[in-house]
Write a protein that binds this DNA or RNA. Sequence first.
DNA 1: CTGAAAGCGCTTACAG
DNA 2: CTGAAAGCGCTTACAG
Lengths: 332, 332
Amino acid sequence: MVTIRDVAAKAGVSAATVSRIINGKGQATPETIARVHAVIKEMGYKPNVVARSLTSRQSNTIALLVPTISNPFFPELARGVEDSANSYGLNIFLCNTDDEREKVRNYLISLRDRYVDGVIVNSLNVTEEDLEELHSHGIPTVTLDRTFSSHKFSSIGVKHREGARLATSHLIDIGCKRIGIIRGPEDDSTAIQRLWGYRDCVKNFDWFDQSWIALGDFSVKSGYLCMKELFQRHPDIDGVYAANDLMAIGLLKAAHEWGRKVPDELAIVGFDGIDMTQYTNPPISTVKQPAYEMGRMAIEELLRLKKLDEHNWYAKKQELDVEFILRESSMR
Amino acid sequence: MVTIRDVAAKAGVSAATVSRIINGKGQATPETIARVHAVIKEMGYKPNVVARSLTSRQSNTIALLVPTISNPFFPELARGVEDSANSYGLNIFLCNTDDEREKVRNYLISLRDRYVDGVIVNSLNVTEEDLEELHSHGIPTVTLDRTFSSHKFSSIGVKHREGARLATSHLIDIGCKRIGIIRGPEDDSTAIQRLWGYRDCVKNFDWFDQSWIALGDFSVKSGYLCMKELFQRHPDIDGVYAANDLMAIGLLKAAHEWGRKVPDELAIVGFDGIDMTQYTNPPISTVKQPAYEMGRMAIEELLRLKKLDEHNWYAKKQELDVEFILRESSMR
DNA sequence: CTGAAAGCGCTTACAG
DNA sequence: CTGAAAGCGCTTACAG
């Protein structure tokens, strides 16, 4: 392995000078710059990233915390993160937290110790103190979406409430008279916002009460079970908004089993915009989040902060638009 | 931050002694061991992982190369890898290669530079020289599945050919008279083995010839397009084996559009065992690969090698069983 | 059994 | 503009 001292020796300068030239710090005559670069090229020298990390306390790595990459919403986000990171020479640590506090904590400690250059958080059970601690170590963060965003650091979200309104009002527009919701977990802020959006649209109907709300956990299975529950409580239900696509897929299955024709007898809308909704039978209308784009933006935001001096950091709160996608499951 | 020297000072020994005790190397009196541990605990000392990497040339990280995490087969594999890695305190670098040589190459270089402790490869365009180079740097590898496995290093695969035979012979058993295949890419060894398995079962029928084989690329869309192609060439087709589940999902859509009842007029079997096949309408029969388990095993294999001295390394070639899962798409 | 010293490969004040 | 020196925090021969 060729080291900075090898280069220095061959170029007839000191290691310090080589270092400065590589990092573009300080001054140097055009001649020595040229000479050093020539030697670097000639010897195929590449700075040792680990040694660099030790002195610079940076590592050219970024961490991505997600509940689980198995939920099809996250791979697209991860691709956005990675493709963008890649273009800046950053590598990605994938961290599945299962939304569990202990896993979150362990990862955060480990990541700090590794001098990661930033962390992108999309997980429950991350606290403001966690973020503060990372920042105090010079590690910027950006929280996405599901992570609570009422903190003082950067975050990128989407308009969940508005999206839920788009979905619900669409069901009303096509003539649904009794509209239920399969909501997400109670400790998930996006689930809450989506519930609000639904409520905004139905609260003034005289048929509406709590019994039209079924509590799911964002899994296919819970969508399936919640739909059965709604059928039993309300045989006259003719429209459902599922707070995510996986549950919409599960409820579609329940509808088939229950013998309800979709969309004629039961219209369905999901949320997220995962690929699979195109391929169910019928395809499911959904509210698409720009997952890939959010991943890209998260990297950009991290790099923006990184460039600034730590004490000049200021948070940026961004909120992206969602897009309603009409498909057969709600075409009448 | 508390360093090893702080601990040494407080314990009244040298840094070298603390280092030895932490790493369980060399000798030490029970008393000094106890004292050092007490001080470590008292001060909350944790060795700096980056400094450790610099001297030890290890980093407690593992890399996972996949074509793209967006293909739903890979998240489960990734979870297997990560869950297992986690239990050993290893972090995971996620590397999406898109099966492109340039990305593969860039990642491999970068990973070597980071002193990763091992790399799990499931990607095309990785060469034997690549593996050799990693090994020559003391980095063990294990290739999974799609990566060519005719090399001299460790690999874990599944019985693709046998799986394809299970799928095809099942179609024959339920009475299909004209069975097509939507195969995978020509440069993908698993696709080839799955094609062979199909051929094993149909080659002796007099109706069989090349025209029953459609060339897909493992994407939903290609499954859809290939199915249309097969319908046009062979209106009498009554069974299809898709070499992966995504293509099976696509072909199911094509069947609906073409007005063919599944399974009565067209029976379908896929391959992989991704979750989504349970939720299509009808659910799709498939040949399940133990993706999560493969991930776990890959970590175990890497650690087995890591424990050995580099010159004592010997490869292990493992091949796992697949499991046929019967669902409505092929129930007659 | 333990310590002093050198080294892993870089970076960064400090001098000049 | 450039170099010598110290330092990032650990590990590992080498002595004794």
